[in-house]
Amino acid sequence: MDVDGVSILARGIAAKGPEGVVFANLDLQVSAGALAVVAGPGGTGRTSLLLALSGRLPLITGYLDVSGHVLPAQAKAVQQLIRPARLRPGYELEDKHRVKEAILERRLISGASDRDIDAALSLVGLAPDRSALVGDLHPADQLLLAVALAVAPSPAGILVDDVDVGLPLPSRARVWAALHEVTRTGMTVLASAADAPSGDVEVIHLPAREQDWPTDVFDLLEEDTP
């Protein structure tokens, strides 16, 4: 597997959700083929930033370029480049499905071949019992299965939300090691976690307090409110 990963450049970006601003005045740069981790406590906008960087959440201000595609105008192209492995809530494997059913579903949706899926499972170090229920797998295996199914069609980047949630330290280390292996293909991995791992990681820290945001962000929000 040889992939041209996405690179990302953002300047002064901000986004809002139903309850208001989720992040603001954010600058970041992600190299192609990097493991980039949005780090911080829950409620700081980690998932929202992953959505925004992949063209799935519109910005209210700022400049965002993903491998030459400028958002929001080229959001659909960016969505094809960066595919979700897991995004919470809403994009996770179904616990009630058997592993073989999850594989078949993603294969039909993505167009990946059986060989592609076998290679992706091997890449992340997973050999699941395909007759087992997804919900019966160890949480780390569930996450790695989702990663493998996202990796199989060789997108330029993948999204992996809440990497460390519910995992003991040894399992976290195993998952981070697998994500590093994914980047060795050239694919960019955009992940979120409370704490970033050590090593070769590009860490994105989110501002956690409203007082860190410039007043013009709130002016923009008022202008954008119907």
Rank of each mutant, 00 (worst) to 15 (best):
E222N: 14
Q142T: 06
T44H: 03
L121R: 04
S110F: 03
D162W: 08
P197C: 13
G90E: 02
A14G: 05
G43M: 04
A75I: 07
Q79W: 06
E92S: 12
K96H: 15
L64K: 11
P226W: 07
D27M: 06
D219N: 12
L9G: 15
V175G: 04
I117R: 11
L179Q: 09
D219G: 07
P72Y: 02
R86L: 08
D129K: 13
L108S: 15
V189S: 01
I117M: 08
G43L: 04
A120W: 12
P58R: 01
L159G: 00
L9K: 15
T188E: 07
L81D: 00
G157P: 14
V124S: 07
P84C: 02
A73N: 11
G62Y: 04
A127K: 13
G45N: 05
L51K: 01
S7V: 10
E222G: 14
P84T: 01
Y63H: 11
G5V: 06
L126R: 10
T61N: 12
V201K: 12
L87W: 02
P207H: 03
E19T: 04
L121V: 01
P41L: 12
D27N: 10
V30A: 08
D27L: 09
V201D: 04
G166Q: 07
P170R: 13
A193L: 06
A15K: 03
W213T: 04
V182E: 00
D164W: 12
E94C: 15
R46E: 03
A177T: 15
A140Q: 11
L35M: 06
V203R: 12
L143D: 02
G33H: 05
A152D: 06
L93Q: 11
A152Q: 10
P18R: 15
R184K: 15
G186K: 03
P89I: 01
V201F: 06
L169M: 15
P128V: 08
V201H: 08
I82D: 01
H205I: 05
A15R: 05
G45D: 01
I158W: 00
P170C: 09
L126P: 03
A119H: 08
L220F: 14
E19K: 00
P170S: 10
E181R: 10
P139R: 11
A196M: 09
L123C: 07
A39G: 04
V66C: 05
R46F: 02
P18L: 09
A102T: 04
S131V: 05
P168H: 09
D27Y: 03
L81R: 00
Y91M: 14
D2C: 10
N25S: 07
G12Y: 02
P139F: 14
